[in-house]
Simulated scan of single mutants.
Amino acid sequence: MKPLLLLPLLLTASAIFAQTKPAAETEAVQQTIRRFFEGMRRGDSAAVRATLAPGAVFHTLTTKNGQTQLRPENPSDFVKAVGTPHPEVWDERITFEKVLIDANLASVWTPYQFYRGSTFSHCGYNSFQLVKLAEGWRIAHIIDTRRKEKCK
């Protein structure tokens, strides 16, 4: 009789664990992205670099003369620019719209508005791909759109 009572308890405990683990992983993924942007706001290139996976890739989508263009951006150049003194704070304000996780891969969708100091610069969406390495979640790929109007 006791094993029959134990089975529902074990099933309930495993269901609770299954529900809390994804929430904890989602928070860890979001925290990596928050650290990336906090480092950018502070001009702290080391903090930004620490959020990136080895071999990380950056892209941006722009429109020129009605044509969509995919532009690669060098993550090392970006990290260097973050750490180079500039007169205004680079402030990218994001919200987490969608976080998907499977094992050691996460995909994150974030609308954003970018400000230089208090001056609006542009907006769009970021798509992040993160991988979970021994050090934790790291950004492997960022691709974004950029525009000055129709911001969310």
Rank of each mutant, 00 (worst) to 15 (best):
N104V: 03
S121C: 03
I94K: 08
E25Q: 09
L105S: 04
T20Y: 14
D44W: 04
L11K: 05
R34T: 07
F58Q: 00
L4D: 15
A46N: 13
W137L: 04
V89P: 06
F120D: 14
W109V: 02
C151K: 04
F17L: 15
Q129W: 04
A18F: 12
L10E: 09
G117N: 07
L4T: 15
I94D: 10
V29Y: 03
R35C: 05
L52Q: 03
T68S: 12
V131H: 05
V29L: 09
R71M: 07
A46F: 09
R116K: 14
K80N: 13
P85I: 05
G124Y: 01
T68K: 02
H59T: 00
W109S: 00
K21V: 09
A56P: 03
E97D: 14
V79N: 03
V29G: 01
K80A: 14
L133Y: 01
Q30G: 04
T62I: 12
R71P: 01
M1Q: 15
K148A: 11
Y112E: 02
N74M: 09
D44R: 05
D102L: 09
K80F: 10
G124N: 02
R71V: 11
T119L: 02
A47C: 04
A28G: 03
Q129R: 06
T95H: 10
R147F: 08
K21W: 11
L11C: 07
A103R: 11
R35Y: 11
T20M: 09
L61T: 00
E73D: 13
D102G: 11
S127L: 01
F96I: 13
A24Q: 09
F128E: 02
A18E: 06
S121F: 06
K80W: 13
V131E: 05
C123Y: 05
A23L: 15
P87Y: 08
Q69W: 07
T32W: 00
F17V: 11
M40Q: 13
R35M: 11
S45Q: 05
G66M: 07
F36W: 07
E25H: 10
S121H: 07
K64M: 13
T84E: 13
A53Q: 05
Q19N: 11
D77L: 08
K150T: 12
L70Y: 02
E149A: 06
A15S: 14
T26Y: 02
V131D: 01
E25A: 06
I16W: 13
F128N: 01
L70C: 10
A24F: 04
L70A: 14
D91E: 07
K21Q: 14
C123V: 10
H141Q: 08
H86Q: 04
L7F: 06
V82T: 03
S127V: 01
N104P: 03
V79R: 02
A47N: 03
H59D: 00
T119P: 08
A106E: 03
A18Q: 06
T26G: 01
Q113R: 13
T60N: 00
A56H: 00
V48C: 08
F17G: 14
C151V: 03
T32C: 09
E92I: 15
